[in-house]
Design a protein around this nucleic acid. Structure first.
Length: 83
DNA sequence: CATTTGACGCCAA
DNA sequence: TTTGGCGCCAAAT
């Protein structure tokens, strides 16, 4: 990475409270690039950081989207912590 | 260095 | 409402 954008993305996603979910677009906006929703997902995927609750980041459509460990697991994980 | 890829998003049929 | 297609960005090839 080494890019400010990626850094912001990580910081933001890390700060997502338990039970909260943000869309890639929202993260992109908070990161400073509203039109970088795609890049956000790409960054999380390329830099899967266990310190980052990327499972809290979903699509703006409300769909789960993708996940390194499987979208299914991600959904279950969210349901479990949102509890 | 140029091109493709991909965990997205929005608009038009 | 469900598809398809286009546009966007950063990272990987």
């Amino acid at each position: 990475m080494n890019t400010e954008f990626a850094q912001k993305v990580f910081r933001i996603v890390k700060q997502i409270p338990k039970g909260e979910t943000l869309s890639y677009k929202q993260v992109a906006i908070l990161a400073g690039n509203e039109e970088a929703a795609r890049a956000v997902g790409n960054i999380l995927n390329s830099n899967y950081d266990l310190l980052i609750p990327c499972h809290r980041v979903i699509r703006s459509d409300g769909k789960i989207g993708g996940y390194n460990g499987g979208a299914r697991k991600k959904k279950l994980l969210l349901a479990e912590e949102c509890k």
